[in-house]
Computed example of a mutant assay.
Amino acid sequence: MFQASEIERLIADGLDCEFVDVKGDDGVHFSAVVVSPLFEGISLPDQHRMVKATLGDRLDSGEIHALGLKTYTPARWTTVRSSLGY
């Protein structure tokens, strides 16, 4: 079972992020908001692949059953973060 804080750390350690917030309290289902300048010009599916790559095989092995992602460039984040409650 994982803590949201551990997933947050893995993402932040593996990707140049301006903001990472992971939520989830059952140890296997999580949602994350990730803001990175590396997402500029990258398709949404590729952004999600980049984030998932920071978790190694934890998703494929079932250690993390589900991870819902919202990914943003820093410019887009400035326009949407208040609507998301940040």
Rank of each mutant, 00 (worst) to 15 (best):
G41H: 00
F39C: 00
I11V: 15
H65P: 03
M50T: 03
S82R: 14
V80A: 06
H29P: 10
I64G: 03
V80K: 04
A4Y: 03
G68P: 00
Y72T: 13
D60F: 03
Y86D: 00
F39R: 00
L84V: 09
P37D: 01
S31G: 14
G14T: 11
T71P: 04
M1A: 12
R49K: 15
R58V: 01
I7T: 07
H29E: 10
S36I: 07
L84W: 13
D25I: 07
A53G: 01
D60P: 01
S36A: 07
Y86K: 05
D21Q: 15
E63P: 02
A66D: 10
V35M: 02
D57H: 08
G41R: 03
P45S: 07
M50R: 04
S43F: 02
V22H: 07
V34E: 05
D46Y: 03
K23A: 14
R81A: 11
I64S: 07
M1R: 05
F30N: 06
R58S: 04
P45Q: 03
A32V: 08
T71L: 05
C17L: 08
R58W: 02
H29W: 10
Q47Y: 01
V34H: 03
P74N: 08
H65S: 08
E18T: 05
F30G: 06
D13V: 10
H29C: 13
K23V: 15
P37E: 06
R49L: 14
A12H: 02
D21F: 11
M1P: 13
A4P: 05
F2S: 10
T78D: 14
V80E: 11
D60W: 01
E40D: 14
D57C: 01
G68F: 09
T71Q: 06
S83D: 14
E8W: 01
I42W: 03
L67C: 09
S36N: 07
R9Q: 08
I11R: 03
H65Q: 09
L10F: 12
K52I: 06
P74T: 10
A66G: 09
H48G: 05
A53P: 02
P45A: 10
P45W: 10
I64F: 02
F39Y: 00
Y72V: 11
P37T: 00
Y72L: 11
L10K: 15
P45R: 11
P37A: 05
K70R: 14
S31R: 12
L84S: 05
Y86M: 08
R49S: 15
C17I: 09
I7F: 07
S43N: 08
V28F: 13
R76T: 15
M50A: 12
T73G: 09
V35A: 07
S83L: 10
R58M: 03
A75Y: 04
R58P: 00
S36P: 04
Y86E: 09
Q3Y: 11
I11D: 01
A12R: 13
L69Y: 14
